[in-house]
Computed example of a mutant assay.
Amino acid sequence: MQNSPTTNAIWDNLLQSGTGPVQQGFLDLAKNTHDFVGYSPDVVWGNLQTPEYAAAMLRLVVDFHEIPDDIEAGVAARTARAQYIGQEGRTYHVLLGEQALLTNIGGADVMRGQLQRLLDATTLPGLTLGIIPARARLLIYPAEGFSFFDDCRIEVEGFRGSETITEPPRLAVFRKAFGLLQSSAVYGQQARELIAATMAAT
């Protein structure tokens, strides 16, 4: 995938137009990405969010940033990313912190539906889903989440918006970080058991 000309300023400008344009931008990225690597320490990865969870999440974004309320458009674009999982040889390696299973977005009913979605997703073709248990020993200090697109672009999201990183030395830092985080993760049956246990307690 070629580096996108999208800059931090453009993301910020898009956000001022509402959630729809930003989520459409990420949908376009997903469509053009064949090798995705991502880490989300405290919320569920966007491509696996249910419509209800995505709506609750985007409601928080709209209210905090005081931007146009176009949540329906944002949800449609965000949840549409899931269609590319397992399609045309695309691969996804995603790490979630256990806190992502626990962070209450939208209330108990929304969370139960979201956790079931994660449980179902563990068998999706092309998707490798790891969970980092809260008590797992970390080999690197905690930091915010990030997404790697075809190993040539990173998006880091936070209160300030999205930061786009394409410089090779900085990409290498995130590759190293992901490898160390991966060492603390569980996969397969262990990950499913962790999700199921959280569901039972929700």
Rank of each mutant, 00 (worst) to 15 (best):
N3D: 12
A9I: 06
N13W: 04
L15K: 07
L15M: 10
S17G: 10
S17K: 10
P21D: 06
V22I: 08
Q24C: 03
N32M: 01
T33A: 12
T33Y: 11
H34M: 03
V37K: 06
G38K: 05
S40K: 00
D42T: 05
V43A: 06
V44D: 05
W45F: 11
L48I: 01
L48P: 00
P51S: 11
P51E: 07
P51M: 09
P51K: 08
A54W: 13
A56P: 11
L58K: 06
R59H: 15
V61W: 07
D69H: 10
A73C: 04
A73E: 04
G74E: 02
A76F: 06
A77N: 07
A77C: 08
R78N: 13
T79C: 15
A82H: 10
Q87S: 04
E88V: 02
E88T: 01
G89H: 03
G89K: 01
R90H: 12
T91S: 14
L95Y: 00
E98M: 03
Q99D: 14
L101K: 01
L101Q: 00
L102G: 04
I105V: 14
A108R: 15
D109G: 09
D109T: 13
V110M: 08
M111G: 06
M111V: 08
R112C: 07
G113Y: 13
G113S: 14
R117V: 00
T122V: 10
T122D: 05
T123Q: 08
P125D: 01
G126I: 10
G126S: 10
L129F: 10
G130W: 14
I131S: 12
I132Q: 01
P133K: 00
P133Q: 01
A134L: 14
A134D: 13
R135Q: 01
L139M: 07
I140K: 01
I140T: 13
A143H: 11
E144C: 04
S147D: 14
F149Y: 15
F149R: 15
D151C: 03
I154C: 09
I154P: 04
E155S: 15
V156L: 12
V156E: 12
G158E: 07
G158C: 06
G158H: 09
F159Q: 05
R160F: 12
L171M: 05
R175Y: 13
K176Q: 13
K176E: 13
L180R: 02
L180P: 01
L181G: 01
A185K: 04
V186I: 12
Y187S: 02
G188I: 15
G188E: 15
A191W: 02
R192T: 11
L194S: 04
I195Y: 09
T198R: 05
T198F: 08
M199P: 08
A201W: 12
A201Y: 09
